[in-house]
């Protein structure tokens, strides 16, 4: 028996010592490329981890003090900001919806209890630079009631402000909407401008 004990002791120490791999390893495994493998294109980290196709279509820079939020339907690129994340900003692509700039602006105005804009009023709106074009921007304040569809519920928020732009592209409408308490939006206006300017179409993936 002692012989066996000795043997097993030697074996045990041998295998215990062989457990930890070294710190530098030479890569040995390789394979031929698949028959129809295409080369990948460069992509930003946002595109690489994109949660939806909209995120793969654009490149952008997130303002430093904004926070990324999980995307959802109609909030395809989604941020929050402010001390308790009460400020929101998100980009939406309404593909082939048929609705135009005026309809969407009027929908937003309705959330502040405002009448639809009259003809010509849209043309008179101030503009912002977005995706390399001058697009109309809406800036309204008041009591905000996004409706029961929104996670905030239907409790109206007083002293609220909305700043948003809408761009009509072929077959789609792209909107960026920022809402929050009046004072917060005032302070974040610059970040919005920076974000809008940073958004560019992405190089084609794959």
């Amino acid at each position: 028996m002692p012989a066996i004990l000795r043997l097993s002791l030697v074996l045990t120490t041998f295998f215990l010592s062989a457990c930890r791999p070294p710190d530098t390893v030479e890569v040995v495994d390789s394979r031929e490329p698949f028959r129809d493998d295409r080369e990948p294109a460069e992509a930003t980290e946002y595109q690489r981890f994109a949660e939806n196709t909209t995120q793969t279509m654009f490149q952008w820079t997130k303002p430093q003090d904004w926070r990324g939020v999980k995307a959802s339907q109609f909030r395809e690129i989604n941020f929050a900001f402010g001390p308790s994340s009460e400020g929101e900003c998100y980009l939406t692509v309404l593909a082939g919806s048929g609705s135009g700039v005026a309809e969407n602006f009027n929908r937003w105005r309705a959330q502040f209890g405002m009448e639809p804009m009259k003809e010509g009023e849209v043309a008179a709106l101030p503009t912002e630079t977005f995706l390399g074009r001058m697009v109309p921007a809406l800036d309204i304040s008041g009591s905000y009631n996004p409706g029961s569809m929104s996670p905030g519920g239907s409790v109206p928020k007083a002293e609220w402000r909305l700043v948003g732009v809408i761009m009509e592209a072929p077959g789609a409408v792209i909107t960026v909407k920022m809402t929050g308490p009046k004072a917060l939006i005032e302070a974040e206006q610059e970040n919005l401008d920076a974000f809008l300017a940073s958004v560019v179409p992405a190089p084609n993936l794959r």
Partner: peptide
Amino acid sequence: LSTALERAPIV
């Protein structure tokens, strides 16, 4: 970062 769910590799 890299995960198997990424849409594109790091280039």
